[in-house]
Amino acid sequence: MIEFNLNGKVVRSNAFDDTPLLWVIRDEFGLKGTKFGCGIAMCGACTVHIDNDAVRSCSLPLAMANGKEVKTIEGFENKHPLQKAWVKEQVPQCGYCQSGQIMQAATLLDKNTNPSDDEISAHMSANICRCMAYPRIKKAIKEAAKQSTLGVNIFDPSISKDA
């Protein structure tokens, strides 16, 4: 029995220890937003967060998720700035890879609130978009970075504490 936290809820699975987390998330817990692409961690369609790191769930044995916090695209509840930016920039074409792209991009913005073009390319080249919506993925990440209130807070004495 493996127990982990899935989008804020504790869940338990009796699947084999070596079952890729992807199939447990999709078929046992019914969260279909995470996609199967290659099965060898080469395409990124299955990207989820485990303790806030982007992980390829198609190649992660269930046992490795034991006791961890797993977040999928559904866990963002449509509130993540990247999701808004993805709509604003009209990023998805077929859309199949986009959950993975968003999960991957989120870990970039977590660590780097203002990534450069090259930093975005380096981070996002781990994920394939077969429709090649890359220019828009890049644009949307920049847009989200602009909108994001995450990251470095600069103390501005002119703004009151409660504002």
């Binding site: 019914g30 996609k35 695209i73 559904e74 709509v87 009209q90 986009q98």
Partner: peptide, 21 residues
């Protein structure tokens, strides 16, 4: 116009063939 199929493709709600049960 905002494409009608875009929002469900940003939150995991779009249903593809592989999602059918």
């Amino acid at each position: 116009r905002l494409a009608l199929d875009v929002p469900p493709k940003t939150n995991g709600k779009a249903v593809y063939g592989i999602d059918v049960e």
